[in-house]
Computed example of a mutant assay.
Amino acid sequence: MAKITYVEANGTRHEIDVKPGMTVMEGARDNGVPGIDADCGGACACSTCHVYVDKDWVDRLPPRDPMEEDMLDFAWEPDPVKSRLTCQIKVTDALDGLVVNIPEKQI
């Protein structure tokens, strides 16, 4: 299991144990974390699971693929470095301690 911390825009923290093989989005959805809507169900067809990854984690995650890059254009206030779609981040044991910050809004 990897412990993922989801931080709401108001500072509320949710520390969730997520099974390897799931996505960060599935971990949030299955545990009722507010602010990650995942309207497309994880198909990388919307940007409602957008988060900002803590800067310490940016280089430790696999790079964004072109489809994710395209969808991030539709996210609310995307950051060129820290923005990610949680549906595109597969959980592994190496992600234990990952912190993601949920934006104030999702589009």
Score class of each variant (00 low, 15 high):
residue 1 M to P: 13
residue 3 K to G: 00
residue 5 T to Q: 14
residue 7 V to N: 06
residue 8 E to L: 15
residue 9 A to P: 09
residue 9 A to H: 15
residue 10 N to C: 14
residue 15 E to P: 03
residue 16 I to S: 04
residue 16 I to C: 01
residue 17 D to G: 12
residue 18 V to G: 05
residue 20 P to Y: 12
residue 22 M to T: 09
residue 26 E to Q: 15
residue 29 R to M: 12
residue 30 D to Y: 14
residue 31 N to Q: 12
residue 31 N to L: 10
residue 32 G to T: 06
residue 32 G to Q: 11
residue 36 I to Q: 05
residue 40 C to A: 05
residue 41 G to F: 00
residue 41 G to M: 03
residue 45 A to K: 04
residue 45 A to Q: 12
residue 45 A to T: 06
residue 46 C to M: 11
residue 46 C to K: 02
residue 48 T to R: 01
residue 52 Y to K: 04
residue 52 Y to V: 01
residue 55 K to M: 10
residue 55 K to E: 15
residue 56 D to W: 01
residue 58 V to G: 07
residue 58 V to R: 06
residue 59 D to T: 04
residue 61 L to G: 11
residue 61 L to A: 11
residue 66 P to F: 00
residue 67 M to G: 00
residue 68 E to S: 03
residue 70 D to P: 00
residue 71 M to S: 02
residue 71 M to L: 08
residue 73 D to C: 12
residue 74 F to Q: 10
residue 75 A to Y: 03
residue 75 A to W: 02
residue 76 W to I: 07
residue 78 P to I: 13
residue 79 D to M: 01
residue 81 V to A: 01
residue 82 K to V: 00
residue 83 S to Q: 02
residue 83 S to H: 02
residue 84 R to V: 06
residue 84 R to D: 02
residue 86 T to L: 06
residue 87 C to I: 02
residue 87 C to W: 02
residue 88 Q to P: 01
residue 89 I to E: 05
residue 90 K to N: 14
residue 92 T to I: 05
residue 93 D to E: 15
residue 94 A to M: 09
residue 96 D to K: 05
residue 97 G to L: 06
residue 97 G to A: 07
residue 103 P to D: 08
residue 104 E to H: 04
residue 107 I to K: 14
